[in-house]
């Protein structure tokens, strides 16, 4: 009687093809979001402590290490935003009668909202 060869499992499947690599990077974006949120909370705590504590932390934020971290965090945050918006029409297949609302419309609406919120944040902080 023939004996089947058992199915193979790879411990490194997430390195084997580009779609899987992008998936893992997408998921790891959460690590950078959490780390960044930690930095933001420290900054907020320094602001509450007063202007000299804030000044010290601004000095720290000017170091290449912090700037590099924020650059990487920004890239991961953008990866998260792009992939998240891409996924929205998958979970919410809006329909108008027989016609499905074009996924591009839903995705586009998310980009518009992100842009509007970005402008709002900049106006509140800078003006």
């Amino acid at each position: 009687m023939a004996r089947p060869y058992p199915r193979e499992r790879s411990n490194a499947w997430f390195l084997e093809r580009w779609p899987y690599r992008v998936f893992v990077l997408r998921e790891l974006s959460a690590l950078f979001l959490a780390l960044y949120m930690g930095v933001l909370l420290v900054l907020a705590a320094r602001v509450h402590e007063g202007s000299s504590a804030f000044r010290d932390y601004v000095d720290a934020l000017q170091s290449p290490l912090y700037l590099a971290f924020h650059a990487v965090a920004l890239l991961f945050a953008l990866l998260h935003s792009v992939t998240w918006f891409q996924a929205v029409p998958k979970g919410l297949p809006l329909r108008r009668g027989e016609q499905r609302v074009a996924p591009a419309l839903l995705i586009g609406a998310n980009y518009v909202a992100m842009l509007a919120l970005t402008v709002l944040v900049l106006v509140v902080v800078l003006s």
């Binding site: 899987y20 998958k90 297949p93």
Partner: peptide, 25 residues
Amino acid sequence: TFVGECSAVCPKHVDPAGAIQQAKV
């Protein structure tokens, strides 16, 4: 965990990843 490759390789555009996301909702 919404890897999404099921939908990418589907020859009939069934989009199983989308089906599962909708079921999650």
